[in-house]
Amino acid sequence: MHGELRRTTQVTTRGDARSEVNSIPSTVTVEALNIKRKAAAGKTHIDVGFWGGAIPGNEGDLRGLHDEGVFGFKCFLLHSGVDEFPHLTADEMEADMAELAKYDSLMIVHAEDSRAIDHAPTAEGNQYSNFLASRPRGAENVAVAEVIERARWTGARAHILHLSSSDALPMIASARRDGVKLTVETCPHYLTLLAEEIPNGATAYKCCPPIREASNRELLWQGLLDGTIDCIVSDHSPSTVDLKDVEGGDFGVAWGGVASLQLGLSLIWTEAKRRGIDLPQVMQWMSAKPAELAGLTHKGRIGLGYDADFAIFEPDSAQVVDVNHLHHKNPISPYNGRALAGVVKGTWLRGQRIDFQNPLGRMLRRGDV
């Protein structure tokens, strides 16, 4: 799945939280890409592909990374959270988009506007309402508008990462009707969790953009059903308990991110089932569409010529999440204790069952068949 591929693109070398930005070195040159591939080879239990990074000053490296098979390029429009992966201004993003348009590569964008965030209230303290106010919908909306217009002007393909603001849906739909090459994803935490239910000090729920209100969640589901949102991806962002500031409960200092890779299918199925949405539709959002977005022509479905990647899923079974029984390295999750519908009983990669003992994964390049 696209989301899983993106979130595991860079091998974690420091034990830090967010793999795509704070794994050293950032994948912004061919040399760094080769270091990552060498580090990951023979150690992965799934097939792993890499995304490049677009940062100030590396425009000249983009073509080389593209030719080496990255799936596309990620950029931020505000501070990424780590100094090793600086963000682009809208003008710098436009220049990089113009470059990527020459060879039809894809720019994937963390769309929050830095100026709007700078003018928002502080997030410090244990009040979730303060954190939510510190990452307002307007910051997303302004940034999404920038992505749309720069994609329109350059003709580049652009993808909005982890959309949480339903306010942006009408302009996304309008841009697509105009022919702008735009795709959009959202994530399990935005489709299952509610700001109104998050306890103060519960930093396990912190992610950026934030989990918003119930009315917002329902509009995101509608965006999926009407096709404005293309896919659901994990945005898997694990963190140590220390970085989450569990004891202090301060949203201003806690690491932002939700680890949901193992639970994603059950999370979405729980909500989809309640809404009368069938499992084949869920598979379109979580498997077929992400694979299509990343250009994985041999993954995302079961069919002749595909890789026989599949899971055995019991949709009528149930489970209660226990972080101590997950395969996650760090036992922290906002879903701990949550009752979910559906249980994954096993996963197969290219026809072989993943046993967590023998790494079966391969390094993928764009267009691999």
Rank of each mutant, 00 (worst) to 15 (best):
G64V: 02
A151V: 14
L340G: 10
R14V: 04
T203Q: 05
G249M: 11
E185Y: 11
W255I: 00
A54Y: 07
Y190N: 11
K273Q: 14
M286I: 09
F131T: 05
Q352T: 06
T12F: 02
L340M: 07
N200L: 12
S239F: 06
A95F: 01
P199V: 14
V184C: 10
V246G: 09
A311I: 14
F50T: 14
F50Y: 13
A139M: 12
A291M: 02
I55G: 07
L182H: 03
N130W: 04
K244T: 12
T9I: 02
P331V: 06
I46R: 01
R338W: 14
N141T: 09
G155T: 10
I354K: 00
L106S: 04
A308K: 03
R176A: 09
E4C: 02
L182E: 07
K74S: 15
C207R: 08
Q281D: 05
R135Q: 14
L340R: 02
R362A: 13
K206E: 10
K289F: 05
V11C: 05
K36V: 11
M283A: 07
K74G: 12
I302H: 01
R7Y: 02
H119G: 08
V233T: 13
A116W: 07
Y128N: 06
I277A: 06
G264F: 06
H236K: 00
V282H: 03
R137N: 07
H110F: 13
D226T: 09
D242Q: 11
R157T: 10
P315T: 01
D113P: 10
L340H: 02
L78K: 01
Q10K: 07
L106N: 03
S166G: 05
V184P: 10
L88V: 04
E4F: 04
E146W: 11
Q352R: 02
L88H: 00
E292N: 06
N141L: 05
R176V: 08
P331W: 03
Q352F: 01
K102N: 07
N22P: 09
L349V: 08
A40R: 02
P56I: 13
L243S: 14
D309T: 11
A116L: 12
G264W: 03
V144Y: 09
L263Y: 13
I198N: 11
W221A: 15
A254L: 01
A272P: 09
Q10L: 14
E20R: 04
T8L: 00
P331E: 07
A341V: 06
V142R: 06
R63E: 15
S317F: 09
S80R: 08
T183F: 04
P238Y: 04
H45K: 08
Q284Y: 01
S260Y: 03
T12W: 03
P315W: 00
S260G: 12
T12M: 10
S215Q: 08
R212K: 07
G72H: 10
P121L: 01
K289C: 04
G57P: 14
L261F: 07
Q281K: 04
G305E: 12
K43F: 09
V282T: 05
V241I: 12
T347Y: 03
H298I: 15
E92T: 01
H328V: 11
I268P: 13
L62R: 02
E247Y: 05
K102D: 04
F313T: 01
F310D: 11
